[in-house]
Simulated scan of single mutants.
Amino acid sequence: MDWISTVVNGALLGGLYGLFGLGLALVFGVMRVVNLAHGEFIVLGAYAGFFLVGSMPQLPPWVMLVPVVVLGYWAGWLLQAGVVNPALKSGDPLTPLMLSFGLSVILRNGMVALFGADSRAVDGGALTRAGIDVFGLRLGLYPLLVLGLALLLFGGLQWLLRRTEFGRIVRATADAPEVARLMGVAPQRVFNRVMGLSLAFAAGAGFLLAQRSSFTPFSGVERMLIAFEVVIIGGLGSFWGALAGGVALGIAQLVGQKFDSNAGSLYAHLLFVLILMFRPQGLAGARK
């Protein structure tokens, strides 16, 4: 029963890890861009939630998820419109990659200057401490809700891209931007909204994780590594694959902690290496 509990809790943690990778998979799938500052925006979402919760203690902490996500969306929109789109005009795929790397360094040092290097966490209140019994297993209510939210967001994004006019425009722009331009679509405006969605997911995931563990301005590197591994394990550009990759990483981490309490993350990274060795296209296969 103890092992079953470990696997189940690992899967619940993996739902949150999947959200880390969702925005990264979206940007890569549409623009073929790897945003190396993704981890820093996850941490910025945690800081935004921290200060919002502290400024309005009379409201339930989970309510602040909405303004955090909205702030993340507009940060992504402005980032794409003002920084990434001009870099994409060069036609060199290394230009936006190196630009995002430089941005990650600037954001990390900027957070240290503004907020200091002390670790912080968001007090999620009674919700994060509540639990329910399921078939003899004691499960945290908060991780269950986060997994449910992850499933809802993954399903909602899939519906948005497959069943709506906006989704058809995004897919057409991803497959053939020049052809889409001839049909009256402005690819740069589409990219603005896609990056907005990506960083909205990142900021929301950062705020959700901040209610489970502490963070510092330097936590972005670890968050980016998790997001990258989630996307690679799931398959580049695959949304449901990213969720499966997150669940796999979460289980590997908690199972690893059963063997060595100080090396749980090591087992998750080993899983990543094994996937690269034996199935480099990922669980769902790479997007063509």
Rank of each mutant, 00 (worst) to 15 (best):
D2S: 13
I4H: 09
S5V: 09
T6R: 14
N9A: 09
N9Q: 15
G10A: 11
L12C: 11
G14E: 01
G15F: 14
G15S: 08
L19Y: 06
G23H: 02
G23S: 03
L24P: 01
V27I: 14
V30E: 01
M31C: 11
R32Y: 05
H38F: 06
G39Y: 02
G39T: 02
F41Y: 13
V43F: 04
V43I: 13
L44P: 02
G45M: 07
G45E: 00
A48N: 02
G49C: 08
F50W: 14
L52E: 00
V53R: 10
V53A: 09
S55I: 09
S55R: 15
P57S: 08
L59Q: 05
P61L: 10
V66Q: 04
V68C: 08
G72P: 10
G72D: 00
A75G: 04
L79D: 00
Q80K: 12
V84N: 01
N85P: 02
A87W: 10
K89V: 10
S90M: 09
D92W: 12
L94D: 00
L97F: 15
L97T: 06
F101T: 01
S104W: 08
M111H: 06
G116K: 12
S119M: 07
R120N: 04
A121S: 12
A121I: 03
A130C: 05
G131I: 03
V134P: 05
F135L: 15
F135C: 02
G136M: 10
R138K: 15
L141Y: 11
L144C: 07
V146D: 00
A150W: 06
L152M: 12
F154M: 05
F154D: 00
G155A: 11
L157T: 05
L161A: 07
R162D: 06
R163K: 15
F166R: 12
I169F: 12
I169A: 13
T173W: 12
P177C: 09
A180H: 11
L182N: 09
L182H: 12
M183Y: 15
M183E: 03
V185R: 15
R189C: 09
F191C: 02
G196W: 14
G196P: 13
L197W: 13
L197V: 12
L197Y: 11
S198H: 08
F201K: 02
F201W: 09
A202T: 08
G204H: 04
G204A: 07
G206E: 01
A210T: 06
Q211T: 07
S213E: 06
G220E: 01
M224R: 08
M224G: 01
V231E: 01
I233E: 00
G237I: 06
F239V: 07
G241Y: 04
L243Y: 10
G245W: 04
G246I: 01
G250T: 03
I251Q: 03
I251C: 04
Q253H: 14
G256K: 11
Q257W: 05
K258S: 07
F259G: 09
S265V: 08
A268Y: 07
L270F: 14
L274M: 05
L276G: 00
P280M: 04
Q281E: 02
G282H: 04
